[in-house]
């Protein structure tokens, strides 16, 4: 136990912010930055992919379907290697590990979000689209004003849940040398060598503290939403819950 406290005292800052201010930012700060960027960019992309998936035009549905299937059927670590080698080729410039990870996380999470949004859209009665079209609204207008507001009505707990997954997924940045939390812990372990259990136990505890508190907030949010819906059962939306809890991590 004293070991653990000792490690925390000596290396706690390394875990939290890397070598900043004497060097680049690292550790938990980088983990958090990647996760926030990842989920913020993944959400709009996910909605676009969902619309692409249901589009009757092969030009949109084909690439969207391929992206979603590949991102969900191939391990994340494999996607990271793909991106690591091909982003520099595609952009013609060197790409940092951080950017590679964020790009991968965006595509990965967007694919999961796309399926959730798609389930939400397809769960709505067909009459909603028909009614919108019959009034003279275009497909996109009906999507924007009638379908998506209903399908995305309860996305906040879902997005929070995907955010928690993203935090866990950032740990894979380790394999391409991104200086995030897991990488920092490994550095400490290689330095100390004699206390692997303590180091990795601390690592697990930090992730746990972060993710578990976010999980508790998500549960609370879900309870609030359910309570609000129970007291005003008639306002708003026929709740469409995706039947599958699509865990991405």
């Amino acid at each position: 136990m004293t070991d653990i406290l000792q490690i925390l005292r000596d290396y706690g800052l390394l875990l939290l912010v890397g070598q900043y201010p004497n060097g680049p930012l690292g550790g938990l700060a980088i983990t958090f930055a990647m996760a926030v960027l990842g989920i913020l960019l993944a959400f709009p992309l996910g909605v676009l992919l969902a619309l692409g998936r249901i589009s009757p035009f092969a030009l949109f549905s084909w690439p969207s379907t391929v992206i979603v299937y590949v991102a969900r059927g191939v391990p994340l670590i494999m996607l990271i290697f793909w991106m690591y080698y091909f982003l520099p080729v595609a952009t013609g410039r060197p790409v940092s590990g951080f950017s590679t990870m964020v790009a991968t996380l965006v595509v990965y999470q967007a694919s999961y979000i796309a399926e959730i949004v798609r389930a939400g859209i397809e769960g709505l009665p067909k009459g909603q689209m028909e009614a919108g079209r019959s009034l003279g609204l275009s497909y996109l207008q009906t999507m924007r004003k009638v379908i998506l507001p209903q399908a995305l009505y309860n996305m906040v707990p879902t997005l929070l849940s995907q955010f928690i997954s993203t935090i866990k997924e950032t740990s894979l940045g380790y394999v391409i040398g991104v200086n995030e939390l897991t990488f920092a812990a490994n550095q400490i372990n290689t330095t100390l060598l004699t206390k692997p259990f303590q180091v990795f136990a601390i690592l697990a505890a930090v992730y746990f503290a972060l993710c578990f508190s976010l999980t508790l907030i998500t549960h609370q949010l879900e309870r609030t939403v359910t309570a609000r819906r129970a007291s005003a059962p008639t306002r708003g939306v026929p709740q469409v819950q995706p039947a599958v809890v699509i865990a991405s991590e």
Partner: peptide, 10 residues
């Protein structure tokens, strides 16, 4: 709530 990679390392 703990990443799979971290569990493997632990």
């Amino acid at each position: 709530n703990v990443p799979m990679l971290v569990q493997i390392f632990l």
